[in-house]
Design a protein around this nucleic acid. Structure first.
Lengths: 248, 248
DNA sequence: CGCGAGCTTGATGCCGATCAATGCATGTGG
DNA sequence: CCACATGCATTGATCGGCATCAAGCTCGCG
């Protein structure tokens, strides 16, 4: 796949149906490693898609849980909030990533999922997924992997929030984003942020002003070129050094 | 079950075998909600136990993943570390809680699990758990619930690390601990910490001095009685107010 | 008894929060 | 098409919470 910069959001029609087996995300999404047989069954299960406009919520904390959602196109954030109103962005999800795993434990969602651009998700009815993954061990295994990796990802965020300084947090965030974009065929050095400074700050445990200042600092140091939400990475090594050899 | 304060750690013999079906943790652990039939099969699967002395590691980041572990007695911490040596405690696990879920995603563990007191764990061979949970949907469901709840718990920690101040973090930590101890029949107001100030600090994203100062502050304010690791909660309401109505 | 790990407490400094003003891009209605 | 509103981003000045550095203290244990 040729590297390209991110496209502008496009509206998607419900009727424009794409089977998992022919979806260009099948190597990133739930179908990874499935045989043709189980892939066919998955195709039948994932029968409906849902369009979510920019700013709309896919689900909200407290909503009943029935389905998982796989991002087909677009971009989401998830956030939890405390009783006194503070909220924390817990993740950003792009094409091929799963939303809704939080709902399994209590049969109701515990976070909000909001589209940051016009998006389309595949609806995966959870009870059917349970049934199917009892039948196909590959599917079971892949599903467990996805949940486990989500736990590992969360641990990484905890490390970031618990022990990194502002510059390191932002560097780690940018590297993580570009890595995931690259896996989807986008450029490793140019990206368009789909979220505000405030949302980045919430995710990283920083205030929006600090995020903005840190972007400016990175620009002054020749690490980035920052034009609003257009980011170009000029010196990836320096970014890496910030995250790791942070003692220097 | 009568409320009691926590007992001192005791050594456990490998041979002292307890079946899941007659384990006093079955209402907190993997067997929750299982029928007799599947419970019997689980008993066969969880054939071995393992003693882990205080300070020893149950598994380490990078170790190959084969089994999950259920804490039978004792107390553990898990921690991840970044390449430059900083590490972050990601959780504390007590009786009935599962360890090792992080290993499923990549077939190797991504964190260290260390016993904070002499402990015993039940070894749950993962491939057998997969097989069995394809057979028994209740087991499958319970396992998925446990993973999902771990994700939700992690989100809660992210909220704590991202947006709470030191006092709120420590209050939330204490309330969470007592709640879990209470579910195991211990007192809701008296507890013995099994971890150092430094480990608490690592978990909460604070330095040990800050943890210590905050304990002292709570004591001055009549919220706690603190004698080294012996904690008595004198005013639970004030603790709750710290976590929630944090604006005051 | 004396050692050492862990805990407490104090003095000081820094990073990021807060408050505030301005700039910039997009969109809308007159 | 301009004037204005609005949402988001940038930048500066100041403040405060927690980290850092440093010194004793406590308690369990060889």
């Amino acid at each position: 796949m040729v590297a390209m910069t991110q496209e502008a959001p496009r509206p998607h029609l419900e009727s424009f149906k794409v089977a998992c087996s022919s979806c260009n995300l099948r190597e990133l999404c739930l179908p990874v490693g499935l045989s043709n047989d189980s892939l066919d069954r998955l195709d039948n299960m994932v029968a409906t898609r849902r369009n979510v406009s920019r700013g709309d919520t896919l689900f909200r904390a407290g909503d009943g849980f029935q389905s998982l959602f796989a991002v087909r196109t677009g971009f989401f954030k998830t956030s939890v909030s405390s009783e006194d109103g503070r909220d924390q962005v817990t993740g950003f999800q792009m094409a091929g990533e799963l939303l809704g795993l939080d709902g399994i434990g209590t049969d109701s969602h515990t976070c909000d999922a909001i589209a940051l651009e016009d998006s389309q998700v595949c609806v995966i009815p959870y009870s059917q997924l349970e049934d199917l993954s009892r039948e196909f061990s590959e599917l079971q295994r892949q599903f467990h992997r996805i949940m486990s990796r989500e736990i590992v990802r969360d641990h990484g965020v905890m490390l970031l929030l618990g022990s990194m300084r502002a510059e390191e947090r932002l560097a780690a965030f940018l590297l993580n984003l570009t890595q995931r974009l690259q896996a989807r065929g986008f450029s490793a050095s140019a990206l368009v942020l789909r979220m505000t400074r405030e949302e980045i700050g919430s995710y990283l445990g920083l205030k929006l002003e600090t995020v903005s200042r840190t972007f400016s600092k990175f620009q002054d140091e020749g690490i980035l070129e920052v034009k609003q939400r257009q980011i170009r990475i000029l010196d990836q090594d320096k970014l890496h050094n910030l995250v790791n050899g942070a003692t220097c």
